[in-house]
């Protein structure tokens, strides 16, 4: 019998995510971090609206599914009444950077002591590929068929930089999932964000640049390359706040 390779904090369920999608990778990283920190019994996740709406099928710990964009408010409610639990939200770019902008900014400003894992794939995946607040200039989507025209459709929002400006924010890092080296860095950042929460230092967020091959119209391999060549120049990788925190 081979050793079970799935983390304790994941179920055995097969992903419903498309081939080449980053959600599965990030789910696994979160589960590994939770196992390593031994917090499976005290962690409560808040699921978004978007492709990961039912991540409670995959995560083997308590999850609350929230309305679109409202995960930071829901997490605030949980963490305020159960301050000794570990709480995190899992949100996409439509959820966090469009409809839920107010909730995330104010959670950060209040220094809410939970962690956010922000999946930025520059498109609305679940609703079939519309322009997101993080869609790049000239990027073709179903609602920017000629490419995002910044003169009429505005500019992509760099949420991490904006959230880092809030005094209540303790830790911000932007990572990527396009190759193994970056995936390992992503896990390190997620772990540190959780430890920042454990230490009670305030709001922590990890923005994960992610692929959506289906709605980008690319193969999984080409999607990884597209992320590297197009997203990283706009969304600089690395720590934005809290680099020197020792946890």
């Amino acid at each position: 019998m081979p050793e079970r390779l799935v983390p304790k904090s994941l179920t055995d369920r097969v992903w419903h995510y498309c081939p080449g999608c980053s959600h599965g990778i990030v789910h696994r990283l979160i589960a590994e971090v939770i196992d390593e920190l031994e917090i499976q019994g005290t962690v409560i996740g808040v699921a978004p609206v978007g492709c990961a709406y039912n991540n409670y099928e995959y995560f083997n710990f308590d999850i609350i599914q929230a309305a679109h964009g409202r995960a930071p408010a829901v997490a605030t409610g949980v963490k305020r009444v159960l301050p000794d639990r570990m709480v995190f939200t899992y949100q996409g770019d439509g959820d966090l950077a469009a409809i839920g902008t107010a909730e995330i900014i104010h959670a950060a400003a209040r220094g809410e002591n939970f962690t956010t894992v922000f999946i930025n794939n520059a498109i609305y995946g679940m609703t079939s590929g519309q322009m997101a607040p993080t869609t790049l200039p000239n990027q073709v989507t179903m609602t920017s068929p000629n490419g995002r025209d910044t003169s009429s459709q505005g500019f992509p929002i760099r949420m991490s930089e904006m959230l880092a400006l809030q005094d209540g924010t303790a830790f911000v890092e932007r990572v990527s999932t396009h190759d193994v080296r970056h995936i390992i860095q992503a896990k390190r950042a997620i772990k540190k964000a959780f430890k920042v929460q454990q230490a009670g230092l305030g709001f922590s967020i990890v923005e994960v640049l992610s692929t959506c091959p289906t709605n980008w119209g690319l193969s999984p391999l080409k999607a990884q390359k597209w992320l590297e060549e197009n997203m990283i120049p706009y969304y600089a990788l690395g720590n934005i706040k809290g680099k020197d925190i020792k946890v």
């Binding site: 609350i64 829901v74 305020r80 009444v81």
Partner: peptide, 15 residues
């Protein structure tokens, strides 16, 4: 909107 969702969170936690 945030207030009712905070209630949703706290109440989900059993409080």
């Amino acid at each position: 909107i945030a207030a009712i969702n905070m209630v949703y969170g706290a109440s989900s936690a059993g409080i």
